[in-house]
């Protein structure tokens, strides 16, 4: 056999993320000059649609603004630009579209706080009636509009298997109204409604819910969690979701510098730590069954994640470490065990 050309033999289009391993500088970065163009991420392209463009009023280092551009640019590419977005009330709506300005560069509708899934179902139905099969629909909202206020409409959309991709940008609270607790707020976190008062300050253990698990229980075609810390994984999931018709749900961990009390440059670092601690499990499920998980690369203790955020600062006040830190570590360990996030040593 002739000697393989190393420039092409190690990576072939379609071999996916793993094959990029060969490129020591391209595996985890957004792009790389050494990778062939069809293997590069959507975000590395000069031609990305920038569905969410400059001039929006999100805070410095906003994880949600970043996650939304990542997700919608990928969906735009997958749909060939034929995409309509329905947006629940929340940060994303407020900071992108203070009338009369809009930062969106695609057809975009603002629904009520709780009915984005139902409105998106209606848009999809309208397109079907008009014979516009090529037009795809996404609904998007924050965790408040999804896990609390919009859950009933969302469950209906799932149960009817409507042809909508619902994307939840999870920043673990109601941030634009002043950081109140949602059912996605983690235990012990300080919010305006779970203040640092009493014996066990912050959010209460044993409350909250996992909407990804609820979505999986609906046995819809596709459910995934993703993170702004892993762009390639996020893009692959949105692309996959767009290749499927029916109800799909993706929840993206988007750190909020304001609500979490973190430095604006730490956004991606925090999202990465959420994955590497096991705090935020990243997985995919199809038709009610978990099909893949994103393994932890370098495991770190949960304290490294917590200490960067003022919402957990009360756990580390004084000389003693709050015993609830151990409970949060146990939560991570339980996630690691449940999803098999660590490779056997």
């Amino acid at each position: 056999m002739e000697k393989d050309n190393p420039m092409t033999s190690e990576t072939t289009p379609g071999d996916g993320v793993q094959k990029l391993h060969f490129y020591q500088k391209g595996t985890f970065t957004v792009g790389n000059r050494l990778v062939s163009s069809d293997e590069r991420s959507v975000q590395s392209s000069i031609d990305r649609s920038n569905a969410l463009t400059c001039g929006h009023r999100a805070c410095q280092g906003c994880g949600e603004a970043l996650g939304a551009r990542y997700a919608i640019d990928t969906a735009m590419e997958a749909a060939g630009g034929n995409l309509i977005a329905v947006n629940a009330t929340g940060c994303l709506e407020v900071f992108t579209t203070p009338y009369p300005e809009s930062a969106w560069q695609l057809p975009w509708l603002h629904s009520l706080f709780g009915n984005a899934a139902a409105v998106a179902t209606g848009v999809a139905a309208a397109m079907r009636v008009k014979g516009r099969r090529e037009v795809r629909v996404v609904a998007q909202g924050g965790d408040g509009g999804t896990t609390d206020i919009g859950l009933q409409c969302l469950s209906g959309m799932f149960e009817r298997n409507d042809d909508v991709l619902y994307i939840c940008y999870d920043n673990e609270g109601y941030m634009n109204t002043g950081v109140q607790r949602s059912s996605a707020t983690p235990p012990a976190a300080r919010t305006a409604t779970t203040p640092v008062l009493g014996d066990e300050p912050g959010n209460v253990f044993g409350t909250g819910k996992s909407v990804p698990k609820i979505a999986v229980a609906h046995e819809i075609p596709y459910v995934a969690t993703a993170t702004v810390a892993d762009l390639r994984d996020l893009e692959a999931k949105v692309k996959k979701a767009m290749s499927i018709h029916g109800a799909r749900y993706i929840q993206i961990d988007v750190p909020c510098p304001l609500g979490w009390g973190a430095a604006s440059h730490e956004t991606i670092h925090l999202a990465r730590l959420a994955v590497e601690t096991g705090f935020y499990p990243i997985f995919e499920a199809e038709h009610g069954r978990v099909t893949s998980v994103r393994k932890i690369r370098h495991q770190v203790p949960v304290t490294e994640y917590l200490k960067l955020q003022k919402r957990f600062a009360h756990l580390f006040k004084g000389d003693k470490v709050d015993p609830r830190v151990a409970r949060l570590q146990a939560r991570c360990d339980a996630n690691i065990a449940e999803y098999g996030l660590l490779d056997a040593a």
Binding site: V30, G31, N32, R40, Q43, N50, T53, L66, L231, I268
Partner: peptide, 14 residues
Amino acid sequence: FECDNCYGVCPDNS
């Protein structure tokens, strides 16, 4: 080395 990270990770597309 033109890894595109800055281009990708900017929340403000700047």
